[in-house]
């Protein structure tokens, strides 16, 4: 499985990378939305994008919308990973096309369980 981690915080990318690699996921990183879209439109297929909300220039919600506007990326799952925790924000992300939602701070177990919900992992 291959995942793209999109977050402007280097520390947060490192945390997610460590957790994901720990369960055998190949991780690519992008530090902002535009870089992420470039990567996604390249040759490599990603099963999952983990997207921060608050990033300079293009925010995570815009990234979700851009991804969902691209038919070739239909199969890719999107998980918001964010400090935005108001119900209204959760709803906006889901309506824009996010498949799952993880609130910061989180622990490794929460990430693994989300992947299981997305059917991207065997739990037994």
């Amino acid at each position: 499985m291959r995942a793209l981690v999109i977050d402007d915080s280097r520390a947060m990318r490192a945390i997610l990378r460590k957790i994901l690699r720990g369960i055998g996921v190949d991780v690519t990183e992008a530090e902002h939305g535009r870089a992420a879209l470039d990567v996604l439109r390249g040759a490599t297929t990603f099963e999952l994008a983990l997207i921060d909300w608050n990033m300079p220039e293009m925010d995570g919600l815009q990234v979700v919308k851009a991804i969902r506007a691209d038919r070739r990326l239909d199969a890719m799952r999107i998980m918001m990973v964010t400090t935005e925790t108001e119900m209204g924000q959760v709803v906006r992300a889901v309506e824009a096309g996010a498949s799952e939602y993880l609130m910061k701070p989180f622990n490794a177990a929460a990430v693994v369980e989300k992947l299981a919900i997305l059917g991207l992992l065997e739990t037994e």
């Binding site: 609130m103 622990n107 929460a110 369980e113």
Partner: peptide, 14 residues
């Protein structure tokens, strides 16, 4: 929040 993060599909949360 820590508990909500654990295993609850976002669809169910909403």
């Amino acid at each position: 929040q820590l508990e909500i993060n654990r295993g609850l599909p976002v669809r169910m949360l909403v």
